[in-house]
């Protein structure tokens, strides 16, 4: 972001931070939804039973592990794309 004044850089920086926070919150609410949907099916009680609590823990753990692995592949691919001609030139 060359050619920005200090004030503009500050503004840009703070927008990026808000975006990251929003992204994180979206991830959080999706994770809650997904693990709830996958693990909770018993509505004869109003508190989580042990089986459900365990399932939610494994669900979160697995999501994080999968997310990390996918993130690695994604970054490799982004790096590779930088060194390639754009799609149209093939």
């Amino acid at each position: 972001m060359d050619g920005l004044t200090n004030a503009e850089q500050r503004e840009f920086q703070s927008r990026m931070e808000r975006k990251q926070m929003k992204e994180f919150m979206g991830m959080f609410s999706n994770l809650v939804s997904h693990c709830f949907d996958s693990c909770i099916d018993d509505f004869t009680t109003k508190s989580l039973v042990q089986r459900e609590t365990g399932c939610v823990s494994r669900c979160v753990q697995k999501f994080m592990a999968g997310s990390e692995r996918i993130g690695q592949r994604f970054q490799e691919q982004q790096a590779q794309m930088m060194n390639q001609p754009p799609p149209g030139s093939r």
Binding site: S38, C39, C55, S57, R58, C59, Q61, K62, F63, A65, G66, S67, R69, I70, F74
Partner: peptide, 20 residues
Amino acid sequence: KLQQACMKKCVPREYREGEI
């Protein structure tokens, strides 16, 4: 989108263990 697609295709939703 990538994450959603590949978790759906590759990781069953039973969650018997926490590791991949």
